[in-house]
Design a binder for these strands. Structure first.
Length: 614
DNA sequence: GTAGGGTTAG
């Protein structure tokens, strides 16, 4: 069988699933036969068929047979109806360990970790002992609530009851530690495992990726790919599968290692793992994060099955690249094709609206989320709404919106307000938002810098200096502005006024030439973005060697002619650089794509894809 | 063999 057929099938929409296809009275009476039928319906996620069988079993009394009850609990779990699993469990006259196991897994699989953990305690109170099926569900639930201490308790319990070396239990514990950010414990657990399988390796690689330990993730991946990893069992393909690939692609995307990502994409094509929706989703994210949104679309369109993750990855790509109409269309198609949006989907939609300044559309999606989809907005949804209102200059409305929040505003909510204030130079609201941030104990330098920029944008350089001094007094250091560009399998990084690069002389000569050309075409330096009270010439000089300009100069002298230039940046692109790059794109005829800390800007022939709204 | 470990955002 080809690999892609062996990969997991997506959850089918209930409405499209087949029914039993035979009249009710023809169903077998024998519980065993019913179990076999139900197993088929479960793997097809056929809700109507299973419900029909359930009704029949209730009538005939077969539902009292434990094994059929277990099957039914599992059936509802896989149909993502954990409440119905719970009801069946309650109706069971006698509860075996397996009955508890089915219930716990139903909760764990359906993102109800608290219920899963309380059911785990219920099982213990009821005098049962957890087994190799139950420990993984418990570990998964600890991971979901990121409670490493509880997880460690589950771990020591598993060791004491003799399940500490079980490959399923240990893999789930590796994953639990990694998800809780305890990467050292995860690695110790992993190293001590007497036998490992694909999931243990993938979990460990994923954990490293999550913690930003790219080198370690890549070296583990190499080990497992070449079969160097001792103790790999039950794996073909040198112990990798679609999930391992999607983990390693994620490493590439978080560090924007495009060339390595492309190579791995090639591997996925050769092995047919590219048909997996996991791999597809991470490839979409890779290309989007590396600034090649066309390639992201291509991967998306070529995917044979698209799950929720794939739709969300595509929506995020649309949002980040300012393809707002595509995001709206994608959202409709997703619903029409039977995929239910989740909270991430709505974060994408709100962020798409924010990038385009579409306040009314954003409000519409925000309302729709709860009213039509029953998804309660989280603080992150509120933060994105505040971002949308603030960027659009509707700061009083944003403040009002925060006041009416049913949840306690978080750092990101106040941070979003502050971002809006910076853009529109509203120093009063900025001071208010910053005060709330400091009350929450914000230790990031971001708040101080945003406040300082808000003052600078309003022309109040004393205020700006005060904000920066307050930051210094607290022992915080400003995040250094960096720009980087990948070329010849190397990442070239630049800071403002950088003189470290081997090609510095050529770079500065190119910079000079570009600036002259831009000025001839009408570019006038706008120094109002410099948050320091320097004299005019000094300001101009400081702006003229911003890191993104150095990166562009480097790319122009290094990359082959005509090749689009892709720059990554850790801070927001400054207003003057934005104008300058527009001129450069027109004078040189080159496409320049800049990713700042929030979105992508694609400069072509003198205009930017953000429409100057960012 | 009815029950178990993995994705997608910023």
């Amino acid at each position: 069988m080809p690999f892609f057929q062996a990969l997991k099938a997506p959850v089918l929409a209930a409405a499209a699933a087949p029914t039993l296809g035979r009249p009710f009275h023809q169903l077998p009476a024998d519980p065993r036969a019913l179990c076999d039928l139900l197993a088929g319906l479960t793997s097809a996620r056929s809700l109507p068929g299973g419900q029909q069988l359930h009704a029949h079993a209730l009538k005939s009394g077969a539902v009292a047979v434990p094994i059929l009850a277990h099957h039914l609990i599992t059936f509802y779990s896989k149909c993502q109806l954990p409440r119905l699993s719970h009801r069946l469990f309650d109706e069971c006259p006698r509860r075996a360990t397996a009955t508890w196991s089915c219930l716990i897994s139903s909760f764990a699989q359906n993102e109800l970790p608290h219920l899963a953990l309380s059911a785990f305690l219920g099982l213990l109170r009821d005098g049962h002992r957890p087994n190799d099926h139950i420990f993984p569900s418990a570990a998964k639930s600890c991971a979901a609530v990121s409670d490493a201490r509880l997880g460690a308790a589950v771990h020591s319990f598993a060791v004491r009851t003799g399940f500490g070396s079980d490959v399923f239990v240990a893999s789930s514990l590796v994953d639990m530690y990694a998800k809780c950010g305890e990467i050292v414990d995860a690695r110790r657990m992993f190293d001590e495992m007497p036998e490992r399988n694909i999931v243990s390796w993938s979990g460990m690689i994923y954990g490293c990726a999550q913690m930003g330990l790219d080198e370690e993730a890549l070296s583990l991946f190499k080990m497992v790919l070449l079969g160097d990893g001792v103790g790999i069992v039950g794996g073909d393909m040198g112990g990798v599968n679609d999930f391992t690939y999607s983990c390693i692609i994620r490493v590439c995307s978080s560090s924007t290692l495009l060339e390595l990502g492309r190579q791995i994409h090639g591997h996925c094509v050769k092995t047919s793992f590219v048909s997996s929706s996991f791999v597809g989703s991470s490839l979409i994210s890779l290309y989007s994060k590396c600034g090649i949104v066309e390639e992201a679309y291509r991967v998306f369109y070529e995917m044979p099955v698209r799950n929720l993750g794939a739709w969300n990855a595509m929506l995020i790509a649309c949002a980040q690249h300012g393809h707002t109409r595509d995001a709206f269309g994608c959202f409709e198609r997703m619903k029409n094709e039977g995929t239910k949006p989740n909270f991430i989907t709505f974060l994408c939609m709100l962020s798409a609206c924010s990038h385009a300044g579409l306040v009314e559309d954003g409000k519409r999606y925000f309302k729709m989320m709860e009213e039509e989809h029953g998804i309660l907005p989280t603080t992150e949804h509120y933060a994105t709404m505040v971002d949308l209102l603030g960027r659009a200059g509707r700061l009083p409305e944003a403040v009002e919106f925060i006041k009416q929040m049913p949840l306690e505003p978080t750092e990101s909510v106040w941070g979003a307000l502050l971002t809006g204030c910076r853009i529109h130079g509203d120093t009063e609201t900025a001071a208010f938002a910053a005060a709330r941030l400091f009350e929450l104990g914000s230790k990031s330098c971001g708040a101080h810098m945003l406040l300082s920029s808000a003052y600078a944008a309003a022309g109040d350089f004393e205020g700006a200096a005060r904000a920066r001094k307050a930051m210094k007094d607290r022992g915080l250091k400003k995040e250094t502005g960096l720009s980087w560009v990948e070329w010849d399998n190397q990442v070239h990084t630049f800071v403002s006024g950088d003189h470290h690069h081997a090609l510095r002389d050529k770079m500065y000569a190119k910079l000079e030439e570009l600036s002259e050309e831009a000025e001839r075409a009408g570019y006038v330096a706008d120094t109002s973005f410099v948050p320091r009270d320097l004299d005019g010439e000094e300001k101009k000089r400081s702006i003229a060697s911003h890191s993104e300009r150095l990166a562009i100069a480097f790319a122009l002298i290094s990359l082959p002619p005509g090749r689009p230039i892709r720059i990554m940046k850790n801070l927001r692109i400054c207003g003057d650089c934005h104008t300058w790059i527009k001129f450069v794109s027109r004078c040189t005829g080159r496409t320049v794509i800049v990713r700042d800390n929030n979105r992508f800007h694609r400069f072509d022939g003198g205009t930017c894809s953000c429409g100057d709204y960012w």
